[in-house]
Design a binder for these strands. Structure first.
Length: 272
DNA sequence: AGTGCGACCCGAACGC
DNA sequence: TGCGTTCGGGTCGCAC
């Protein structure tokens, strides 16, 4: 599933390929994907062009002259660039056709992803964007900030790392990896996290996300027809999806456990 | 306010 | 083999 590193990779790739290209046609094949008014969505995008692509957490923010198009890929959303005359595939739900006869196609097997078009001034009051916490690597993400957020929380630290209002951008893969790197048991309650552990989370999260971004993420196989890029962070995972394997640090057996309904992988020895 | 959980989806994995 | 069932996973909204 796309997490912050994957979304950043998509952003960088698309920026090289679609900016300043005039959009000639807009097809919405699955209407529930658009959370704003659909006629307005089509009307504004048509004959318009993207001038930048920004990101906040896992949200992609496509900038137009007077609007932003917000896009969340959720688990399986992907963008493909294709020739306009390629047959439309089953899971391609939103299609923007540019003047040069190429399409930007949004593909989403499970239809979980969402888009919304907003006026520029609405970004400041947009619920989804404004509630995002600080991102790994941002200087505001400090151990003091985390301790304040964790202090009255009686729920597992693993669950708290997935809370986008605290740290923006971590999903299941990186939450598992950050806790391993920080040597924290995923079941430990938020209120029991020490200053030192919070500092470990700050540093591990920054390091892991930076590295994952350099390697193009973990799960992405390809997101355009022209650039078949594989997320190479896959090779650096220490615990995620490694149930039954040896811990690379201590050789204990990696365990898998459901925490709040989510698969959690950890080393019972390194993460006491 | 904090917490848990169902709904949204559908392909893959599983059970019989 | 083939069918039906269960699972997963990010986010929202609702119930407690």
């Amino acid at each position: 599933m796309p997490e912050i590193a994957e979304v950043e990779t998509v952003r960088n790739t698309l920026k090289k390929q679609i900016l300043y290209k005039k959009i000639e046609n807009v097809q919405v094949l699955y209407e529930k994907m658009i959370e704003s008014d659909i006629q307005e969505f089509k009307r504004v995008l048509k004959n318009n062009e993207f001038i930048d692509i920004k990101r906040r957490g896992k949200w992609l923010i496509f900038e137009l002259e007077n609007h932003y198009l917000l896009s969340h890929l959720r688990m399986e959303g992907k963008f493909f660039l294709k020739k306009e005359n390629n047959p439309i595939e089953k899971h391609e739900h939103i299609i923007l056709t540019f003047q040069d006869n190429t399409d930007l196609r949004y593909h989403d097997t499970r239809k979980f992803g969402r888009m919304q078009l907003i006026k520029k001034e609405e970004l400041e009051t947009n619920k989804a964007i404004q509630k995002q916490g600080f991102e790994p690597g941002e200087k505001e993400l400090t151990s003091t900030y985390l301790l304040e957020k964790f202090k009255n929380k009686n729920i597992a630290i693993k669950t708290l790392l997935l809370d986008q209002t605290i740290i923006s951008g971590l999903g299941n893969i990186y939450a598992n990896e950050v806790l391993f790197a920080s040597k924290i048991n995923p079941l430990k309650k938020g209120s029991e996290i020490t200053k030192k552990e919070a500092q470990n989370i700050v540093e591990s999260a920054a390091k892991i996300i930076k590295r994952a971004m350099e390697l193009g993420g973990t799960t992405i196989k390809s997101y355009t027809s022209s650039l078949g890029v594989t997320g190479r962070f896959q090779q650096e995972l220490m615990v995620h999806k490694k149930e039954g394997e040896e811990c690379k640090v201590c050789k204990a057996t990696i365990k898998k456990e459901k925490i709040n309904g989510r698969s959690t992988y950890y080393c019972p020895t390194c993460q006491k």
